[in-house]
């Protein structure tokens, strides 16, 4: 649905994109990840026809984004990193504008607006000025605009940037819903954690080169290790504990004596279970750390009465 072939973009001697090949099929959420300056936005601008590449071709739904731009754009829903919103229009006026620009009119347009507003849960705000919406609502409105003409392909540039956890979870749910309807979604981010649990496929972009492009699971399983954190409790000397870890192929990445030790093991449930059994048999008590990174988010969701799942 979204495809790139040998895309190259240069700014003088700087190669912004170097022969990038990419495919996003219907039903996929393709996460384009890479550090700032890797070329993500350049690639997105080429895919949306906003930037002309030095060589190569980009297509949406089989249509060249430069030579068959009207056909390609009819199949594209694009959301830039700043959302592209007019503050002085109401929600309804904003959607009406882009519906008309995409060729919708009359009852068809009114129905599409209602559907899009329902999908992003903004029905109650339809007569408010965009200026009065929160950032999360603004972002949902931008998404509603991309949904209006029911495109087959979505290209979203850093859509979760600056969103609160609840808004991000809502956005992820909407995107998953789109893929269930056979849409192709390309989403960029420089925050890898954002992509966990959302994307089905990943493109790893670094200095204009696509280092990996394929299924998410394949990427994370290749050479994957599992990191385990624990604190030994009891009278067993630390040197003995280190010896036991080494015997089981564990690599200590933390410093003994820290609050919690961090051990890197093969990503295998049996290996982890064997190590724990051996430590317990040797009289080492094991204390596990709390899931610190989720605590704040979970507390927030619990207090606001939202469903963490």
């Amino acid at each position: 649905m979204i495809a790139a072939r040998s895309l190259t973009v240069r700014y003088g001697q700087l190669v912004a994109l170097d022969g990038v090949d990419l495919d996003v099929a219907p039903g996929q959420i393709f996460g384009l990840i890479g550090p700032n300056g890797a070329g993500k936005t350049t690639l997105i601008r080429v895919l949306t026809g906003l930037l002309v590449p030095e060589s190569g071709q980009a297509t949406i739904g089989g249509f060249d984004v430069l030579r068959q731009e009207r056909d390609a754009r009819r199949r594209l829903g694009y959301m830039p990193d700043f959302f592209g919103i007019y503050d002085h229009l109401t929600v309804r006026e904003y959607l009406q504008l882009f519906g008309e620009l995409n060729g919708l009119a009359g009852p068809g347009l009114a129905g599409a607006i209602e559907q899009a507003l329902a999908a992003v849960r903004l029905k109650l705000k339809k007569d408010e000025l965009v200026d009065h919406l929160s950032r999360g609502m603004t972002q949902r409105l931008a998404l509603a605009r991309t949904l209006l003409h029911d495109p087959d392909a979505f290209v979203l540039d850093e859509p979760a940037s600056g969103l609160d956890p609840a808004a991000r979870i809502e956005l992820w749910d909407i995107l998953r819903g789109l893929t269930q309807r056979g849409k192709a979604v390309l989403i960029s981010s420089h925050i890898l954690k954002e992509m966990e649990g959302l994307v089905t496929h990943v493109g790893l972009l670094e200095r204009g080169r696509l280092l990996y492009s394929g299924p998410y699971e394949t990427l994370v399983k290749a050479g994957a290790t599992r990191r385990v954190r624990f604190r030994p409790v009891g009278d067993v000397p630390p040197e003995r504990v280190v010896g036991l870890l080494t015997e089981h192929g564990g690599r200590l990445s933390g410093v003994p004596g820290d609050a919690y030790w961090e051990v890197e093991l093969a990503d295998d449930d049996a290996a982890v279970a064997a190590l724990v059994g051996r430590l317990v048999a040797a009289g080492v008590g094991i204390s596990l750390p709390p899931v610190a990174e989720d605590r704040l988010e979970r507390a927030f969701l619990a207090l606001t009465g939202r469903d963490a799942s």
């Binding site: 949306t48 026809g49 906003l50 731009e69 009207r70 754009r73 009819r74 594209l76 694009y78 830039p80 990193d81 700043f82 959302f83 592209g84 919103i85 007019y86 882009f98 620009l101 995409n102 060729g103 605009r145």
Partner: peptide
């Protein structure tokens, strides 16, 4: 500045 020009330019107009 608001990237609305980009959005307009990705419509079929």
């Amino acid at each position: 500045d608001r990237k609305t020009l980009d959005v307009l330019m990705t419509t079929p107009r």
